[in-house]
C-alpha cells in the first residue's frame, strides 16, 4: 500500500496500481466525487475526502449539457459554471495543490467529450497531467469511439476509465474491460446519476459479468449514497463512487467537515464487508 507520490507526477498505471494494492489487502474502495469550481475554496473538499479515507477522488469538469447526469449534478454544474468555472481554472486550482502536502489519493477527472475535443485530446491530456491528474472518465465517449483518445491518454500517462452498463452485451463488456485503464466503472442501473432508495438489482448482475472477464478493480457508481448501499455494493464490486449524495450536500451548503462526517459511515461500511467473491 505504497502510494507516496501523487501530485503532480502520477506515472502511467499509477491509479490502477494504487487501487489494486488497496483492494488486495481487502479494503473496499471509496471514490467520492466533487464538481470542480463549485465553491471558491472547493479544493478543501479534496482534503476532506482524503481525510475521510477516500481511495481515489473524482473531480467533475462542469459542462453546459450534462446529458448523463440527474438534477443534482446538473445543478452543481450550472452553479460551478455560473461562478466562472472552466477546465483551465479547475486544473490551475489542482496544480496549486501540488505545492502542498500530498493528498495521497489519485485524482480522476470526469467530463463530457466536448470539453476534451475543444482543447484537442493531446492538449487536454497534457494539461491533466501537468495538474497532477491520473485518470479520466468521459461518459459520452463509448469504447467504439475512443480510439482518438486512448493512445493519446496513454502517452500522456492518463488512465482512461471506460464505463460498462447493465445493457452492455458480454463480448462488448470484455472489450471495455480490456481497454479500460485504472478500473472499470460499472454503471449500477439504467438511468442517470442521482440518489436512489435502494441499490439496483442490475448492479450485482453487471459486476458479476465484468468479473468473468477481468481482474481489474471494478467500482460501482450511480445511485449509491448510503452505508447500506455501499455495503451491498461491496458484496459484488471492489468499491463505490459516491457523487450526487455528496453534491446535494454541497449545494445545501455543507462544508468540508460536514462531508467528512458524511463519508465516515460509508468508509466504515466498506471496511466491514470483506468477504467479497473473487
Amino acid at each position: 500500500m505504497t502510494y507516496p507520490r501523487t501530485n503532480p507526477a502520477v506515472a502511467a498505471g499509477a491509479v490502477e496500481r494504487h487501487l489494486r494494492a488497496r483492494r488486495d489487502v481487502g479494503r473496499g474502495l471509496l471514490m467520492p466525487y466533487v464538481t470542480g469550481g463549485i465553491t471558491p475554496g472547493w479544493t478543501d473538499y479534496l482534503r476532506a475526502f482524503a481525510a475521510a479515507g477516500a481511495d481515489a477522488i473524482e473531480v467533475g469538469l462542469p459542462f453546459s449539457d450534462p446529458t448523463l447526469d440527474g438534477v443534482t449534478i446538473q445543478q452543481a454544474s450550472d452553479a460551478a459554471l455560473a461562478r466562472g468555472a472552466s477546465t483551465r481554472r479547475i486544473l490551475a486550482d489542482l496544480s496549486e495543490l501540488s505545492g502542498l502536502p500530498d493528498l495521497g489519493v489519485p485524482l480522476v477527472v470526469s467530463t463530457y467529450y466536448n470539453l476534451v475535443l475543444h482543447d484537442g485530446p493531446e492538449a487536454f491530456c497534457a494539461a491533466l497531467r501537468r495538474a497532477g491528474v491520473g485518470g479520466l472518465i468521459v461518459p459520452d465517449l463509448p469504447v467504439h469511439e475512443a480510439d482518438e483518445l486512448t493512445g493519446v491518454a496513454e502517452g500522456a500517462g492518463i488512465e482512461l476509465v471506460l464505463l460498462a452498463s447493465p445493457a452492455t452485451p458480454q463480448p462488448r463488456l470484455a472489450e471495455i474491460s480490456a481497454r479500460s485503464r485504472g478500473f472499470v466503472y460499472a454503471v449500477s442501473l439504467m438511468g442517470t446519476t442521482g440518489e436512489r432508495a435502494a441499490l439496483a438489482a442490475s448492479a450485482a448482475e453487471l459486476t458479476g459479468r465484468i468479473r468473468r472477464v477481468t481482474d481489474r478493480p471494478v467500482l460501482l457508481g450511480f445511485g449509491i449514497s448510503t452505508p447500506d448501499q455501499a455495503r451491498g455494493a461491496r458484496r459484488h464490486a471492489d468499491g463505490v463512487v459516491v457523487g450526487a449524495a455528496v453534491m446535494r450536500r454541497v449545494l445545501d451548503g455543507a462544508g468540508p467537515d460536514d462531508l467528512r462526517a458524511f463519508l465516515a459511515p460509508l468508509r466504515q461500511a466498506l471496511d466491514q464487508e470483506c468477504d467479497r467473491p473473487r
Binding site: 446529458t67 448523463l68 467529450y113 461518459p139 459520452d140 465517449l141 463509448p142 469504447v143 467504439h144 469511439e145 471506460l162 464505463l163 460498462a164 452498463s165 447493465p166 445493457a167 452492455t168 452485451p169 462488448r172 471495455i176 454503471v187 439504467m190 438511468g191
Partner: peptide, 19 residues
C-alpha cells in the same frame, strides 16, 4: 460507422449504445 466525413458517430452513453 455512422460517419459523414469526420462528423456523426455514436457518442452515446454506454447505457444507450445497445439501444
Amino acid at each position: 460507422r455512422g460517419r459523414f466525413g469526420e462528423y456523426g458517430g455514436r457518442y452515446a452513453p454506454e447505457s444507450l449504445v445497445e439501444a
